[in-house]
């Protein structure tokens, strides 16, 4: 897809809502922009209906700004908080049945490869922890075993947040939530380790308190999936509503968890991905 198909018919230019005109004139399409340029271009999300201080909303904003090829990216979402933000996102996106996101993404990627063999089409799954590690773990891991060339991004708020607060596999051991009053009885699942063991060529755990690191992980994850095989990026997105902290404390909560070692930021780069990134870096010079 090229930007020229995003042109407005001149006769209707005056009636188009301002956000569409801005996207055409100053959107990120076919531009090399990133999180450092936020505020200087029209973002891919106009607004969102998520709670104040939502770590997921902040992360989604950064992820969208980091996509290397938004005009040719297809996002596959799933049930959860992020699903109510996606209708506002100006990137092709598909909502799948709860947990089916990686199966859908596999099919989309294969179909696009057949339909547009000479074009780059990035397929990116963005789903919550419940969809990724609980309900959809089968589909997620099978897509990794099959070496599907898709990027899987988990928005990890450590709970089923928009259904009242149930524990998920990503909740910490002992976590007490509205719908989990007795406290979680088993540890947080280490999906980055599972991803690595399941064949992901690039794995990272990042957070929005470090936007540049998050951006780097997204770019690497998308480029490695495009060329090599499955990639997995886990983004820590704390939930003030269910974990009962003030909306303006989200970033502080992230920093605190990282500091106390209860949320690890990691990066695994396979040898082939290392070679790819070195080649791409060399090409930039």
């Amino acid at each position: 897809m090229k930007k020229n198909i995003f042109q407005i018919s001149p006769s209707f230019y005056d009636v188009m809502p301002a956000e569409y005109r801005e996207l055409v004139e100053n959107g990120p399409f076919e531009k090399k922009v990133g999180v450092s340029d936020l505020g200087a271009f029209k973002e891919l999300s106009e607004e969102h209906p998520l709670c104040a201080g939502c770590g997921l909303a902040l992360s989604l904003r950064l992820i969208l700004a980091s996509l290397p090829n938004p005009e040719d990216t297809i996002i596959v979402g799933s049930t959860g908080c992020s699903a109510i933000a996606f209708p506002q996102v100006a990137v092709q996106n598909i909502h799948s049945l709860f947990g089916n996101q990686n199966a859908i993404a596999s099919g989309v990627k294969r179909a696009l490869t057949l339909r547009f063999p000479d074009k780059i089409k990035d397929v990116v799954v963005i789903a919550g922890d419940g969809a990724t590690v609980d309900i959809g773990l089968d589909m997620v891991m099978q897509s990794w075993f099959r070496q599907e060339r898709i990027t899987t991004i988990m928005l990890d708020n450590e709970a089923y947040a928009n259904t009242g607060g149930q524990e998920s596999g990503m909740s910490q051991e002992g976590a007490v939530l509205h719908m989990a009053p007795k406290g979680k009885t088993f540890p947080k699942v280490s999906l980055p380790e599972l991803a690595r063991a399941s064949g992901c060529v690039y794995v990272a755990a990042v957070n929005p308190a470090k936007p540049k690191k998050l951006e780097k992980a997204i770019v690497r994850g998308v480029l490695a999936a495009r060329e090599l095989g499955p990639t997995y990026i886990q983004v820590f997105t704390p939930c003030p509503t269910n974990y009962k902290f003030k909306p303006n404390e989200t970033i502080e909560k992230i920093k605190m968890r990282v500091k106390e070692g209860t949320y690890e930021t990691t990066e695994f780069i396979s040898a082939e991905a290392q070679e790819l990134f070195a080649r791409l870096e060399e090409g930039k010079k």
Binding site: Q7, I8, P10
Partner: peptide, 16 residues
């Protein structure tokens, strides 16, 4: 018809 995505659309938009 709002988006000029292929030949002929601009003319159709004008007629509308």
């Amino acid at each position: 018809v709002l988006w000029a995505w292929k030949d002929g659309v601009v003319e159709k938009a004008k007629a509308i």
